[in-house]
Design a binder for these strands. Structure first.
Lengths: 134, 134
DNA sequence: AACTCTGACAACCAGAAGGTTGTAAAACTT
DNA sequence: AAGTTTTACAACCTTCTGGTTGTCAGAGTT
């Protein structure tokens, strides 16, 4: 499957590998050739080439030509898009929590009236104890 | 092996699937049970449970207990961490580009970059052969 | 007690990911 | 022209991923 994977998935998937993140960190400081990028890793040049292809497919880098080397350059548009997605949903959540706070206050008031209005959230169900790590 | 995958990778990997992102979107609007989460998808409940386990392992959600249902709640700390990683490196890149374009601008914003360690990129160190990420 | 509803665990499967080695091509050096 | 440097492509292997079906356990219902 994965016929035509959406961009966002490609970006996040590209970021989901430590090697690739390290490559991006390196590229944030300036363009570099495959050789240079491969050097810090205990890994073949071919493996790095594959990682670069993943990054290229996610449009996180682009490649130019200079003599026999193909330097890599970071692109930030899609990084921004990814950060944007996170920020957006994080924000919705934050807003909702604000409203929840209001609701709790309102609920307290309503309780004093003996009213039993819609209580969607158990109110104390936040006792998550964080669960098993595995 | 993947003995103990680093948190950042877990988070990004969890975000790299459209189904899981949709689940998070849904959860941003309020907690929900597995049933409710599964409904919009042409997919078995078991598949959704697996996705939830991935999200849980990445600590993007946690689960509570209420009768026979196990509602899911969004957690934002790790979302923030991921967004932070992106923002940080996007920023380094932006700073460096300023330098490339304009030395004076570089002087100016090198002063206000409280982001992480002020790293003095030598401005033409584009071909230095080092730069390990770890 | 028997039934239903909700969710989880297990076994299985196809395909993608991430690595390897071997080899080849393009551009530069001698 | 021959050799070196740099990178890519292909085949292969192993593990992970994302889905399936079948089954089972726990909490509420009748």
């Amino acid at each position: 499957m994965t016929v035509v994977e959406d961009e966002m998935s490609l970006v996040f998937a590209a970021l989901a590998d430590p090697t690739r993140r390290a490559i991006l960190e390196r590229l944030a400081h300036g363009e570099a050739a495959v050789n240079q990028l491969a050097e810090p890793f205990a890994m073949s040049q071919q493996a790095i080439s594959k990682h670069l292809k993943v990054l290229e497919r996610a449009r996180l880098i682009s490649r130019t030509r200079s003599a026999q080397s193909r330097p890599c350059v970071l692109r930030t548009e899609h990084l921004d898009a990814a950060a944007g997605w996170i920020a957006r949903h994080r924000q919705i959540w934050a807003d909702r929590h604000d409203r929840l706070g209001d609701h709790l206050a309102a609920l307290r008031d309503a309780r004093r009236d003996g009213e039993e209005t819609a209580r969607a959230v158990p109110l104390d169900a936040r006792s998550d104890g964080e669960g098993t790590a595995r």
